[in-house]
């Protein structure tokens, strides 16, 4: 089977689980009383600024970018934790933006989240066993002995053994890695299909990261999960993802199969980002692509291509017209005037 054919075959046989269309989230800027009196106009932080993508069943789709690029907000909008300003989110072809609270509650059984900070994502006054079993109770799925049995088997599944011991502990009695395992257990106890993992390993010690990532990948295979993985760490993204979307200032600038993004990055921002990642090899002297300045504020996003003030290759067109995310190959999209140009050449 040729590569191209395989790709098409896979595309045809894989169904979308989540689709995001023209999603926007603008947060109003908090102003002081005096400013409110003096100015009429209201500033907005354009955290997420018109993004469209879909996540396929059974894949790991990664949203990657620097802090403040809107990746976490996107994840929370999909889960209904933050209402979008505009745009639509579909879960298995059913629109889930603006659901009624009761419908949203039911949806929670099918999509879950793992948070970044394993220290803060547990109620300090609730035992681990109660916290993990709580979702079952809330949804009336199990209680008493049955709940206990489910919690025990889930704890065992995420590697917190002996589970009888962990069930009685309070969060502060667990190490960071153990807490993140417990958080994974809590997110899986309702048997969801779709998991948003928001930087699940960035606060975990280096020597433990791999175990957490491998656990997540094992569980994915075993329970047929789909992950939306959010990270700032492209090295981790490369290890775990099937497809990657790179975000810059609220927009997706490049998206595609992992191999495409990492071996043939087309957007200058992706190239710079990749070149800046430290490589664990003292013999390898790499060339870092220099970007001018730093990420501008999301309140005053530059005109035209939002990356042009920092782009080493910016041309006149870049200042005027905002590039659209366009297909450059079957599994690769990029939002850059120059990348398109090079495609024609």
């Amino acid at each position: 089977m040729s590569d191209a054919f395989y790709m098409r075959w896979r595309e045809m046989n894989r169904t979308e689980i989540v689709r995001v269309e023209n999603l926007k989230k603008y947060f109003p800027v908090e102003k002081s009383f005096l400013e409110k009196l003096l100015t009429r106009t209201r500033g907005f932080i354009r955290a997420v600024d018109d993004i469209t993508f879909s996540v396929l069943r059974g894949e790991v789709f990664t949203l990657a970018g620097e802090s403040g690029c809107g990746k976490t907000t996107t994840g929370k909008i999909i889960l209904g934790l933050v209402p979008p300003t505009s745009g639509r989110v579909f879960f298995r072809d059913r629109e889930i933006t603006n659901l009624k609270p009761e419908e949203l509650r039911l949806l929670r059984r099918r999509m879950q989240i793992i948070f970044q900070d394993p220290y803060a994502s547990f109620n300090p006054r609730m035992k681990i066993g109660d916290a993990i079993g709580h979702p079952l109770e809330i949804h009336g799925l199990a209680s008493g002995l049955e709940k206990r049995k489910k919690v025990l088997s889930m704890l065992e599944r995420v590697g917190l053994t002996p589970p009888e011991q962990f069930i009685e502990l309070y969060p502060h009695q667990l190490s960071g890695g153990q807490r993140q395992r417990a958080a994974i257990a809590r997110s899986l106890i309702l048997n969801p299909e779709f998991i948003v993992a928001d930087e699940p390993v960035s606060m975990i010690d280096v020597s433990l990261r791999t175990t957490i990532i491998d656990l997540m990948l094992d569980l994915k295979r075993e329970l047929q999960l789909t992950y939306l993985f959010i990270t700032h760490d492209l090295a981790v993204a490369k290890y775990i993802s099937d497809r990657v979307a790179i975000m810059y200032l609220g927009k997706i600038v490049e998206m595609g199969e992992k191999e495409e993004i990492f071996s043939n990055p087309l957007h200058p921002y992706t190239q710079a980002l990749l070149s800046a990642i430290p490589v664990p090899n003292p013999d390898r002297k790499r060339r870092i692509i220099e970007l001018k300045g730093e990420v501008p504020s999301a309140i005053r996003i530059p005109m035209g291509c939002r990356f042009h003030p920092r782009c080493p290759f910016a041309e006149e067109a870049c200042q005027k017209e905002e590039p659209e995310l366009t297909v450059v190959s079957a599994s690769h999209l990029v939002a850059c005037h120059l990348a398109k140009g090079s495609e024609h050449a």
Partner: peptide, 20 residues
């Protein structure tokens, strides 16, 4: 995050207020 986590598991406001 733990209140957000409670929301994401579908806890009602009453539960969040009294248990979390």
């Amino acid at each position: 995050p733990y209140v957000e986590a409670a929301k994401s598991i579908g806890a009602k406001n009453r539960t969040i207020l009294f248990k979390y």
